[in-house]
């Protein structure tokens, strides 16, 4: 399925109910309320103390509003939903996720959720949820990878159809930047070291980072006028051509400016950390770290040579080193 076809199919989901209304397996009850309050450390007596609740503005026990979703959850049966749906009904939300997984966006992360409460629930109330696919974004470049945001809206009602509250839920279904290492993690291994921040990737820079992964320091080149440009952009500012390719830089250059980072400390980075702005011999500039010189030994104009080095098991970066004499 190509991208226009995928996006047209995705648009078809917007406005659809994800499936039939779901009625909570248990009515609102004091036992689940008590468990919740203990787990949350909420000592408000209107939830658990009948006498105090009777004397309060509520006139009796009520459930914590934030339990709203809990009343309509399907419990452990949710784990079997994938099997159930073939036999019982089609769940549109699962179908949507499956579609995106097939299209190359296998990962999912919840990004935000909001709830609103129309009235307090009391023991004996029954909760029925209706969920609708509210919106699906276009393809987005995010810090995690390229993907689609899926928004659902759930309305909670009583059996008479009166609204009890609502919830919006947004997930990102995405293609992660780097595939996890093939080897299974060793449970005895020490906790992973903090890693350097990953570059956000999108249409306009993925190819450059693919080059780094392949051991090449690339510089974008206009195919019409030959101008080199960095950082990359989709159009040539000189001749407005959108045709481009790249040259592979030799990685040699001279320090144009630099900083030495001390504060704040950032996990995954060791300070003092020199960062250099280098005039590459090809004519563009590049920011990267410098190794092999103490901060006090760094000089503007110093000749440097980039090497592409592994920062961890997944990420490579260009690193400048003092050039060999004579180069």
């Amino acid at each position: 399925m190509d991208k226009p076809e995928l996006e047209a199919t995705l648009r078809g989901f917007v406005g659809r109910e994800t499936g039939p209304p779901v009625e909570g397996p248990d009515p609102v009850n004091e036992v689940m309320i008590r468990h919740w309050c203990e787990a949350m450390g909420d000592a408000n007596p209107v939830y658990t103390d009948r006498d105090a609740a009777a004397a309060s503005v509520h006139g009796g026990l009520v459930a914590p509003p934030t339990m709203l979703q809990a009343w309509s959850m399907r419990g452990l049966a949710m784990a079997d939903l994938r099997q159930q749906q073939d036999e019982t009904h089609s769940d549109q939300q699962l179908a949507l996720h499956e579609l995106l997984t097939q299209a190359g966006f296998p990962s999912v992360v919840a990004t935000n959720s909001e709830q609103g409460y129309t009235r307090y629930l009391r023991p004996g109330d029954r909760v029925i949820s209706h969920t609708v696919v509210e919106a699906i974004s276009g393809e987005k470049a995010t810090a995690l990878g390229i993907g689609y945001f899926l928004d659902t809206r759930t309305i909670f009602r009583d059996p008479a159809g009166d609204e009890l509250g609502w919830m919006t839920f947004r997930v990102l279904k995405f293609k992660p930047h780097a595939q996890p290492a093939a080897a299974a993690p060793d449970p005895a291994a020490a906790p992973a070291k903090p890693r350097r921040l990953r570059p956000p990737l999108g249409h306009d820079n993925q190819w450059w980072w693919d080059g780094i992964a392949a051991g090449e320091l690339r510089i974008q080149r206009c195919r019409d006028c030959g101008t080199l440009r960095h950082p990359p952009r989709p159009m040539c500012g000189r001749c407005q051509s959108i045709a481009w390719d790249w040259v592979v830089s030799r990685g040699a250059g001279a320090i144009h400016s630099y900083v030495v980072l001390h504060h704040p400390p950032v996990p995954g980075y060791e300070v003092p950390l020199p960062v250099v702005l280098v005039d590459l011999d090809e004519g563009t500039r590049l920011v990267a770290n410098l190794a092999g010189r103490k901060p006090a030994e760094i000089r503007i104009g110093m000749r440097v040579q980039a090497r592409i080095e592994a920062m961890d098991e997944e990420m490579k970066l260009p690193v400048f080193h003092p050039a060999e004499s004579g180069s």
Binding site: A141, T142, A143, R196, L197, R198, P199, P200, L201, G202, D204, N205, W209, P231, V259, L261, V266, Y269, L273, V275, V287, A288, N289, M311, M315, L317
Partner: peptide, 12 residues
Amino acid sequence: LIHWSWYLPFGL
């Protein structure tokens, strides 16, 4: 976001 990809991995 893409703009920051040129600085973020290097700690800038």
